[in-house]
Write a protein that binds this DNA or RNA. Structure first.
Lengths: 233, 233
DNA sequence: TAGTGGTCTAGACCACCCT
DNA sequence: GGGTGGTCTAGACCACTAC
């Protein structure tokens, strides 16, 4: 009964996890309500609520009003990806960061970009191509389109001094982001950029950021072979 | 001043996001404390706390006792991956799911497995190889090792009826999970399994689950070409 | 319609850590 | 030392939904 004066929501959460991994409470089973557990643990209902709410958010519990709380039967567990600026990603791995601007043009965006961004065809956008290095080895080849209607200041920026990635994060707030991770065979260009061979398998991170319903930028990151994106929960 | 009787934590959160995207509160800037905002919004401090705490968890704010709350300068944004059983993943995409057991043996695990799982060398483990189909096309080729010390019941299961993935999720609770996503060129075996050609780029999901400090299972999922893992925030 | 979770309040104490 | 966020409480009302 764990009469352990578990007066913090973390300790209550631990106890709940214990009973699930214990199989005291089995998958699919209805577990006691907030009031009952608050009583048992000798704490306020809000404290139990905080513990259980977080477990429900992470997918381990399923809660419905009136129906009560169950141990999730087919838990959709949620893993967290930490999205940070490339410089920080390199430095966190212990590398020395450097970036190079390859190309910078204001031009009409191709239809496959404008349609994904829900912009009119023939919209003028800023197109950037950059290379990010770690210890002087190519790490990421970046191909980016920027919506000038939202980020008009960007035309004045000197991208030899700061990467577009870093400038945008600091100067172009966004509210939403769509991410698609995939694997592709390197094109000839990508292979040259990343100092590898054509058709080598590379990790692709396609990202679109939005502020409200307006697209801010759309970027394709091609990682040098061997990259592993880590996550845990 | 938004005198809009914003009496829910969600509406307060929206207002905070608005002021950040507005640049009313700029990156790095100190924003008013909980008490002050509670006063302004006409709600309890706990309500403001709930709104800001969640924004801090998602990386948009940085909070420290005494120092106050700032708009994150280099926000480490957190995207969420939804990890679900393969059958659900296929069905959610509108496909008809089927799986096939290719191989099942209890044998000594190779060192590259035991060392990752922090198990003794020469530990006997259950090795499984399975194929998951979507609309009768190969979707995932799965290579799995299971720790029999933790999941001893598994030796009795008939994996023609249920995939190891689904059985484990329902019967072997875990507390932690490490995920590594990468891109690799298909080996000859993988190419045959996934009905593609050797060296084709495929998306790899390497996963280890733990219960406390004990490894439960370690699995390598190789997705058929064209797979995209989606996420957003 | 009754029971459950979701949320809000007003107040309180505490841990942390900047000044 | 004092100001800030982190948390807990006891109570309340509401929304949803299984029954």
């Amino acid at each position: 009964m764990s009469k352990s004066k578990g007066h913090s929501w973390q300790s209550i959460q631990q106890e709940i996890i214990l009973r699930i991994t214990n199989r005291t409470w089995q998958p699919g089973e209805l577990i006691p309500g907030e009031a009952k557990l608050a009583n048992e643990f000798g704490c306020a209902r809000a404290t139990v609520n905080r513990a259980m709410r977080q477990l429900a958010e992470s997918g381990l519990l399923e809660r419905r009003r009136k129906a009560g709380t169950r141990v999730a039967l087919n838990p959709v567990r949620k893993a967290v990806l930490h999205i940070q600026i490339t410089r920080q990603e390199v430095e966190k791995r212990g590398g020395v960061y450097r970036h190079a601007l390859l190309d910078r043009q204001i031009k009409t965006a191709p239809p496959y970009i404008t349609s994904r961004l829900r912009l009119d065809q023939n919209t003028e956008m800023l197109h950037l191509r950059e290379l990010h290095f770690s210890d002087n080895h190519p790490f990421i080849y970046e191909d980016r389109w920027v919506n000038l209607d939202v980020v008009s200041d960007i035309v004045k920026v000197d991208f030899d001094k700061i990467s577009s990635n870093e400038w945008l994060v600091n100067n172009a707030p966004f509210s939403n982001c769509d991410i698609a991770l995939s694997a592709e065979n390197a094109s000839k260009t990508e292979a040259e950029m990343l100092a590898t061979t054509e058709n080598k398998s590379i990790f692709i991170n396609d990202r679109i950021t939005w502020i409200g319903v307006s697209p801010v930028t759309c970027v394709r990151l091609a990682y040098a072979p061997g990259y592993r994106m880590l996550s845990s929960f």
